[in-house]
Structures are given as C-alpha cells and as structure tokens.
C-alpha cells in the first residue's frame, strides 16, 4: 500500500518535477512513513537547528497571503490549468511543468510541503528550494550563494531564497546601474 507521502512524491514526479527524488522503500516495523521518506530521499533537507540560519520574514504578497483566506473554502485541484487571478498577480515562470502543489501544501495551504510530505513554514522555504537546487543550497548554508550580512566573526543574517528570487519567476531582475565615473577630461575644477 502506498503511503500518503509516496503518493505525493509520485504526483510530483508525474508533474515533471524530476528533482532526483529516489524511489521510496517500504517502512520498517515501527517507522513512520515520514521517517522513511526523510531517510531515503537523497539530500532531503533536514530541519535546521533553532536559529541556525537566521532569516528575515518571507516577503508575503499583500492580498494573497494567507492562502487559507480563500483556499479553506476550495478543494485542491492538482490539474495544471489557467488560473485567472493568480496568473495575473504572479504568473508561474519557474521552469516547465511546475504546479502549485509541487511546493504549496494542498490543505491547510498556509504552509509549504517538501517532496517527502513534510510540511514546513514559509520561514524555512530554503529547505523546499534546496530539494532541486542542492548545489545552491549547499553554498547558501556556508554563506557563499546569496547575501549574508552581520559579522564576519560572529552572528550572521541570511536571506531566504525568496528574499532575492521571486519563487514564481525566479530569474534575478535587471537593475538600473548607478552613474559611471567622471572621465578625466570632464573634470574642470
């Protein structure tokens, strides 16, 4: 019999997730399905220790979060399709074949869900991103991918992936550069 976690992983794979998630094993006696999933998904990001990665609050979109405000009244629909209001507000441009429930928990909706079925708060979303972007996650943890501020020999503040990358369209937005230096010939004083 398939566990709930297994079903979700299969669903994610069928949806084209293909993030290197390994096939699941049957639980050993006394083992919860979740423990099996966590133990057998290679690189499945484990829960951080308290304050291991201090991050600012997630950038929730006003009028959209909490999801449960609308979704408590709706049934989860796993079929990819055109979504009028969400497509207008936050069109999904995150590689081909993605769907909401690859990342969002179907119900209750105010949490995220890893491929192994574990639900996590938005403040730990890096664990979710890390499932596919393992190389970036590894570098982020040691402060090499992304911005880390604070003290080089003390406490450091991390950024959530989503503080810099819009999760629905993650490509970094171009910026207006600050002015170029003055050419020597233009200095008159």
């Amino acid at each position: 019999m398939k566990t709930i976690a297994q079903s979700w992983i299969l669903l994610a794979l069928a949806g084209g997730a293909g993030c290197g998630v390994a096939p699941q094993q049957a639980p050993l006696p006394g083992q919860t399905p979740e423990a099996v999933a966590a133990a057998t998904v290679p690189g499945a990001p484990s829960a951080p220790k308290a304050d291991e990665y201090p991050v600012p609050p997630p950038p929730f979109s006003e009028g959209i979060y909490p999801c449960s405000f609308c979704h408590d009244m709706l049934d989860p629909n796993p079929t990819p399709r055109v979504l009028n209001n969400h497509d207008a507000e936050q069109p999904l441009r995150h590689g081909p074949g993605r769907w909401c429930y690859d990342c969002h928990n179907p119900k209750p909706m105010d949490v995220l869900r890893l491929a192994n079925g574990t639900t996590i708060p938005f403040s730990e979303s890096y664990r979710l991103c890390g499932q596919c972007h393992g190389d970036k996650y590894r570098d982020w943890k040691v402060g090499v991918h992304g911005k880390r501020t604070g003290s080089w020999n003390g406490k450091k503040e991390y950024r959530l992936c989503v503080n810099c990358h819009n999760p629905h369209a993650p490509h970094f937005k171009p910026l207006r550069p600050l002015p170029p230096p003055v050419r020597p010939a233009e200095i008159h004083e």
């Binding site: 402060g143 991918h145 992304g146 880390r148 501020t149 604070g150 003290s151 080089w152 020999n153 810099c164």
Partner: peptide, 20 residues
Amino acid sequence: KGLYPACVEICPVGARKFGN
C-alpha cells in the same frame, strides 16, 4: 570591529564575500 565591509553589505546579488 567584526563587521563586514560596506560593499559586502550592499551588493544586491551577494557577489561579495569577506572573512579570515
């Protein structure tokens, strides 16, 4: 005083890294 240089703190893409 243990702080990062100002350029490390401002860089919007986190390209700048500093340490011992």
